[in-house]
Simulated assay, not measured.
Amino acid sequence: MRFFSLFAIFAIFELAYGIPEESYLAEHARLVEPFYENGESGTVKTRDDVSIFYKIFSHPDGKVHVLISHGWTEDTKKYDEVAYDLYQHGISTYILDYRGFGQSQRITEDPHISYIESYSDYLKDLDAFIGKVIRPRIGDAPLMALGHSMGSNILSIYAVENPQSFRKMVLVSPMLDIVTPYPERISWLISEFFSVIGLGDQYIPKHGPYKGDRPNLVTNSEVRFNKWMTDMRANSAMAVSGASFAWSAASLEATWRMKDDASKLKIPLFILQAGDDALVETEGQDYVCKRARNCFKMVFPNAKHELLHEKDIVRDKVIAEVVDYLLNFNF
């Protein structure tokens, strides 16, 4: 059974996590935006010559280093508030835009579609970021990892292939089962068929180019969701709004691989599960956590997919748990 450290118990009551929703826009502009803009920006080339954008928020006294792996349609900017929160606790963060997202290089002419033939390409992005950017800065210091949804899946596959890469991992609403209109195998067959006949870079049904808005299926915090929509409209060239057949097939294959390889996950693993998740099924999360060597799971029953961007009452608890785990808790 997991217990809070004494530090974390006091932290929950004495420290504010994030900025409150009632003054969100003003406080975000006053505190988070300057923090994000002052972070180190850069690009790194992968071994297949793709340019990957990243941001670094290095704490001068920080001894804990955390790589943040974003979810589908997201980018570094989406995690400005998360990086700001962790920085307040002496945690340095390192965030990359995977290929096809944010300010990283696009693989297709349409900048709004997510396209990938295999998740091995995302692993190349991660490998270049860790090997060429993070490790030269932190040396042999332990590296933690925090992933959301698709980003959790990428981290998990990377950790199986590189078991010494991370000291601990936090997986938030990991994409280990995808909600699909048909059974997963049928959805894969459809996506794979269109990929084989040369239409892998086309949108799957009901997906399409970015039109400036989307329905909120991901959080109970309207102010945080609306802020993200505003950011996307201001940078519409970087907005990703739909999945390709190739990305769909590759993503399903990646979830199956993680279930097959769950017992190979040996590092301490903390899964945060959203009870009202409309995008991923929780069965895959349960399956992986039961079979991983060292996994603890926490459920937030009424929360939606984006736990790191939820209403304050949920998000404060999520951030407190993440901070406690990264700074103090050992299995």
Rank of each mutant, 00 (worst) to 15 (best):
S236K: 08
P183R: 08
Y203H: 12
E74H: 00
Y182Q: 14
V323L: 06
K227W: 13
N162K: 09
R137D: 02
Y325M: 11
E281H: 11
E27D: 15
S152L: 05
K77A: 14
E283W: 00
V170W: 01
T219A: 04
G208F: 01
T255Y: 08
P111M: 09
P215F: 01
I19L: 12
S191W: 00
G151F: 02
L31A: 07
S23K: 09
E74Y: 00
A262D: 06
D125A: 13
D260Y: 08
D316M: 13
V314I: 10
P183Q: 05
E37S: 06
K168W: 14
I186K: 05
N294R: 13
A234M: 04
A320G: 01
I313Q: 10
V160H: 15
Q88G: 09
I95A: 07
G275R: 07
Y17F: 15
G39L: 15
T46F: 15
V323F: 01
G100E: 06
A254P: 06
S173A: 12
I107V: 04
Y210P: 00
A274Y: 10
S114V: 09
F193S: 11
L15N: 15
E184T: 13
T219C: 03
A254C: 05
D61A: 12
K206I: 05
D276G: 08
S263N: 12
L217N: 05
E14L: 15
D177F: 04
I154F: 06
A303N: 01
S173T: 04
Y24V: 11
F270E: 01
V66D: 03
Q164V: 12
W188V: 11
A83M: 10
F270C: 07
A262Y: 04
E184A: 15
D260L: 10
R137Q: 07
H207L: 03
A145Q: 12
G100S: 08
K311H: 01
V223S: 04
D201Y: 07
D316R: 14
S114R: 13
G275M: 15
N38L: 12
D276S: 14
F101I: 04
P60N: 03
E74F: 00
F10G: 09
Q88K: 15
F166M: 02
A26W: 04
G147M: 06
G131A: 13
F129G: 08
V179I: 08
G71H: 02
R293G: 14
P163E: 01
V64E: 05
T180K: 01
P181C: 12
C295P: 00
E22A: 15
L146F: 11
K206A: 07
W228P: 00
I186A: 04
Q103M: 11
E14C: 10
G139R: 09
A243D: 03
H70Q: 14
A128Y: 03
E161M: 07
E21L: 11
I204M: 02
Q105E: 15
G42C: 07
A159C: 14
T282V: 09
M229C: 04
D201E: 14
R106S: 13
Q285R: 05
S23E: 01
S118D: 08
T93W: 05
R224I: 11
S241R: 00
L15R: 12
H305R: 03
E222C: 09
V323S: 06
Y17Q: 03
V299K: 07
P205Y: 05
